[in-house]
Amino acid sequence: MSWFIKFITSSLGQKLVMSLTGLFLILFLLVHLLGNMQLFRDDDGYAFNAYTKFMTHNPLIEAVAILLYIFILLHSIQGVALWLQNRRSRGPQAYAVKVTKTTGTNSFASKNMASLGILIFVFLAIHMGDFWWKMKNGTAPVVQYEGEEYQDLYTIVVASFQVDWIVILYLVAMVGLFFHLLHGFQSAFQTLGINHKKYTPAIKFLGWVYAILVPLLFAAMPIYVYFFK
């Protein structure tokens, strides 16, 4: 397997890992978003808790979840490693004046992918500690719908989203996610080698739509709960 190690640790191999894991995470975000939209239903959390039960009890999804955890870690660790490598490549002496012009991407986002990534990672840790951990170690309360027991994640979420700092954290993180996606979405395709006069404009457009829509809808959740629940 030494050839594979060589490939995957080469600069372009590392980038390919970033690209593929990134694209997987982009896909996950969409699924996650669609599921969480149940939060907006006015049914005291029934749909949301039912969705939660499905997600935590389906073996296929369990398996995919493990893949997701691995990919999150891979994307993060690889990202930090690349960031450190790039700092080393620049050397100790910084430019006294530095202007970074870019051509087809947002220059703030593209330059700060690592910082944005770290922000998102920190958010992710708090987010998972708040909800996922409580589900996993069974400290979540239980409700019954039509005689069946459900873990009441809905109540936990509503409780959390009454706390000012948590809501603010979510909003800041979603702004970070917006920028991360803004560059990351199209960058993933470029790294895969997809840059085509006919298709790239569409990819870039889709990237914009995705980067705006997904964080916006996620951000709507704490805001909705904070003001209306």
Binding site: K15, N86, S89, T103, S110, M113
Partner: peptide, 16 residues
């Protein structure tokens, strides 16, 4: 890679 150049993150400053 051996020369110690950094990794591309598609910033596009090079093209600009």
């Amino acid at each position: 890679d051996l020369e110690g150049f950094g990794r591309c993150s598609n910033i596009t400053a090079c093209e600009a």
